[in-house]
Design a protein around this nucleic acid. Sequence first.
DNA 1: TTTTGAGTTGTTCGA
DNA 2: GTCGAACAACTCAAA
Length: 435
Amino acid sequence: MTALFWHRRDLRIDDNKGLFDALKQNEIVHPIFIFDKSILDKLPNNDQRILFIHQEIESLKKNYQNLGSDLWVYYGEPSEIIPKIAQELNCSSVYFNNDYEPYALQRDQEIQVSLNKIKIEFIGKKDHVIFEKNEVLKDDGKPYTIFTPYSRKWKANLKEEDLREYSIEKYSGNLVQKQQGEALITLEEMGFESKVLHDFPDRIAKNEILKNYHLSRNFPAVKGTSKLSLHLRFGTISIRKLALIAREQNETYLNELIWRDFYQMIIFHFPKSAENSFKAQYDKIIWEKNEVHFDSWCTGKTGYPIVDAGMRELNATGFMHNRVRMVVASFLTKHLLLDWRLGAAYFAEKLLDFELASNTGGWQWAAGCGCDAAPYFRVFNPQAQQEKFDKSFEYIKKWVPEYGTSSYPEPIIEHKFARERILQRFKSALNETNA
DNA sequence: TTTTGAGTTGTTCGA
DNA sequence: GTCGAACAACTCAAA
């Protein structure tokens, strides 16, 4: 039998569950990738994530060529391309790895319907997470909304089999051979500039970083975080391999990977949380409308150096240290009282590692409206955060060199005032709905 | 069904 | 400087 394998957010051949199953069950497998026009059309023409994907597709193509095969790359609408290609190549099935975002679920649903009409199977596999959808549920069969009990069940459920490697070595002969692949579509042909603005982090889980993760992860001037989020996002590393290492090396790091599964599960069961507060009563909060404040936050000119350093790191590199992400998110939502959706949208535009599920979860956590979120009266003090986590101003000096000189702006809002304002605003909004 | 204990990453205040 | 309690009450998970 002949099958199509559709790469999406799993840009690797090694340890790829969907590809493995396709090869195991079929004599001929055609691997393909589609640059989704409807997603690309919404992005600015210098979007660095498209450069990253393009670069990874180029290397994926080479890896297939080394196996005597090739990756076919298309540009257009998946809902049109998939049924057309599958039929042309006489495929009895199309394999892919599951994606839990609302857009992806709807797209896949449409494709499923079209394929069913032409009697082609559409087979999704779990590859992006360790446990998906309904694999970690409460005893009453409902999804968890609190992390700690979820993580306990997650760990209790974990078996060696869940972390095994799916090597295609045995079946690589089933990849379609000596295909006359066309040259890869260029970035210019899709309307993007090919100018690299950012360095992309390595895809290596450095042992000394993982070992000390729980000790150094909170200090943005230290190389204490794995920087693997971009690779997890696009599947250029395997979550199973990483979880295996994490389990051996560091419980705190493993917990972060469980948070990732948790938020993927939440977005699957509660797709509306991408737009609405997880706790409905928090949508009663009246946010400020202040474009000047928002602009100061975006450009890193709030007068709070730890906030400004974070925003400037983001603007310059497409990355921000996790501790600082919490600080800037708390500042936007609680000091400036601006809607968390504004911040989430800005992160979506700028972060190379942007992942809808984690981004939504993180922002709602910071704003206090998420599942298992920080209580609303927990207002990060930017100065205290700097004293704790960037005591010698190392991180701040790197990104805000003019800090301490007259050209550095005065704080755009006073801490004590802001703290009292948010406590009052949230309290009255939540009391109203309870009454 | 009822009850009980617990809940990512903080801050502030007062002793 | 250090430490514990209050912050505000609610909802969730599990027995």
